[in-house]
């Protein structure tokens, strides 16, 4: 494809091809501070394609394709091409990864130990992780944590954090404008703006660490902390994984090891600052 670029995020390299120049230009700008890929051979290929050649120009809409496809995925307007590229990378990893156990979770590291935050969309895990990343933690990622079945360690996947709606302003107040991507309005999830992780997160993207705490946050409800049975954690993490079944016994080994070795709590919090304090409190109690 005429327009393309190669990006390295944590241990994975993506080759992105596009029928249009704009998404690739925006990707290059957003990923300008990322380390150059150390290898020409990408793990995954993403294609941003027009359905028909004339749709390059007329009502252009971006179809997200690649090595692994999800039938029936709807296209996005070209103005949201950057979002399409990000979704394409997520999709390739989610469907194609066969070494790391993938958990749909945000994560951050401090003192060589990893905190995993997992929950559905709207649980606030992206915002919490982004804030932790600005308050002395190393952000590992806001979308996927990659568990290495051989070591049990969590690998970073520090894509730009995709901030949605109200959380854009929360981070805008404390992060320099240069680290933000363009504001994307009217997406299927409302307003989206990408936040590039800081230098510590990017330079540390090849450094995994051992998980120490798993939290299941819930946003917008009165403050509460609940201990969880190991089997409940196990079930919820199989549901949060896109490739648990496909990894076979390696996935079983990785997940049972993670849940039996790592304490877990369900936390409810009414607002972001309370959530942040609660995370710090539970983290301190570990030591």
């Amino acid at each position: 494809m005429r327009q393309h670029c190669t990006l390295k995020i944590g241990p994975r390299i993506f080759r992105i091809g596009s029928d249009w120049a704009a998404p690739v230009r925006q990707l290059r700008a957003l990923y300008a501070d990322y380390p150059m890929p150390d290898d020409l051979i990408a793990h995954f290929t993403v294609r941003l394609e027009a359905a028909r050649w004339w749709r390059h120009f007329l009502r252009p809409s971006v179809h997200i394709n690649g090595d692994h496809m999800l039938p029936g995925a709807l296209p996005l307007p070209l103005a949201q091409g950057l979002l399409a590229a990000e979704m394409g990378m997520n999709l390739q990893l989610a469907l194609g990864e066969r070494h790391f156990l993938l958990l749909h979770a945000a994560s951050a590291e401090r003192n060589g130990k990893v905190l995993i935050l997992t929950g559905e969309s709207g649980s606030g895990k992206s915002t919490l992780a982004a804030l932790l990343g600005e308050h002395g933690w190393r952000l590992l990622g806001d979308e996927f944590v990659l568990i290495d079945p051989t070591t049990g360690h969590a690998w970073p996947f520090p894509r730009p954090v995709s901030l949605k709606n109200a959380s854009i302003a929360v981070l805008d107040a404390i992060v320099p404008p240069a680290r933000f991507g363009p504001l994307l309005t009217g997406t299927p999830k409302g307003d989206i703006r990408h936040l590039v992780p800081n230098a510590a997160a990017l330079s540390g993207m090849d450094s995994p660490a051992a998980p120490a705490l798993i939290l299941f946050p819930r946003f917008g409800v009165p403050r509460d902390v609940r201990t969880m049975g190991i089997s409940e954690v196990f079930i919820r993490l199989t549901q949060a994984s896109t490739n648990y079944v496909a990894l076979g016994e390696a996935g079983f080994g990785a997940l049972t090891r993670l849940v039996t070795a790592t304490p877990a709590r369900a936390i409810d919090y009414p607002d972001t600052m309370t959530g942040l304090a609660l995370v710090e409190e539970l983290w301190s109690a570990l030591a």
């Binding site: 496909a246 990894l247 076979g248």
Partner: peptide, 21 residues
């Protein structure tokens, strides 16, 4: 093979193994 090719092929082999099972 280059390490990254090996990694990609290892993934393909895991997938084939799962598929076969």
């Amino acid at each position: 093979l280059p390490a990254s090719v090996q990694a990609a092929l290892d993934a393909a082999r895991t997938e084939a193994q799962h598929n076969r099972t």
